[in-house]
Nucleic acid binder design. Structure first.
Lengths: 132, 132
DNA sequence: TTTTTACTTTATAATTATTATAATATAAGA
DNA sequence: TCTTATATTATAATAATTATAAAGTAAAAA
């Protein structure tokens, strides 16, 4: 394990609420969505606290910031490698737990040292299919 | 071919400048970067025109909007399906021209109608490898 | 336990990116 | 050339994020 003492953070009620909101959350929420959930229990919660906490959690490796939505940050508490199924209409994201052993031929590798991959599948979710 | 008459757009000097800026451009520029290039030749160029034109080009299928950067839109004139090789250190992006026929088993498809996929390979580019 | 200290929260302002509006200008067809 | 539908522009409005600084608080030191 390379879990260091420094990985612990000062646990305040606000941080606990944000962590609990993220725990097992597979909806890849934005900062605004997290704020909206935690501010129900903590009406004094500030937007700045949400952003500060998310930045801290990201630095400690406890959440991953996704670049799926140009326009807003989305967060994922699942830091294990996995893939995504993205609805091109509502931008909803579903996790895909499956490994893809993609091998990039030497000639296409551009001398990069490859350390991993991530696949986004694009499609239309059941909800948006109905709307049509 | 499903290229319709409607795919043509009214060619104004501003639009020509934006199209020329994008032509063969593999840097995946943001709206601000495009504005900065075209406004050198067209000092009266407005940001609104850049956004309007990019929206039109996107609707006509002449550019793709990438979600690489949460925070700003990035555009790619290469509309053929391709993938990316991303350096985790300097965030440089290199295009990968290759198809990956990834089949997601029925059970993992969550009733989505899948229309495509995109692979990001993560690694360390030759430049960053040297620096170590 | 009390005090101290460093870190956290909060309200607010500032910044950045994008979209909306409406008056003016212009490309392309009649 | 004239007309008309569309494009451009300046400007304002909106949205997301970051910065600032005062006040509050968890945890360590005394």
């Amino acid at each position: 394990m390379d879990t260091k003492k420094k990985d612990s953070i000062k646990l305040t009620p606000q941080r606990i609420a944000i962590i609990e909101c993220l725990e097992g959350n597979t909806s890849h929420p934005s900062a605004a969505e997290i704020y909206s959930v935690v501010s129900e229990k903590y009406p004094t919660m500030s937007f700045a606290t949400v952003y500060n906490t998310l930045q801290t959690l990201r630095e400690k490796g406890r959440v991953i910031e996704l670049s799926i939505d140009s326009g807003k940050m989305r967060f994922d508490p699942n830091t294990k490698p996995h893939h995504h199924l993205i609805c091109v209409q509502c931008k909803n994201i579903t996790d895909v737990h499956r490994k893809f052993a993609l091998n990039l031929p030497e000639g296409e590798r551009c001398d990069y040292e490859i350390i991993g991959n991530h696949v986004d599948f694009y499609g239309i979710c059941p909800g948006c299919k109905k709307k049509k």
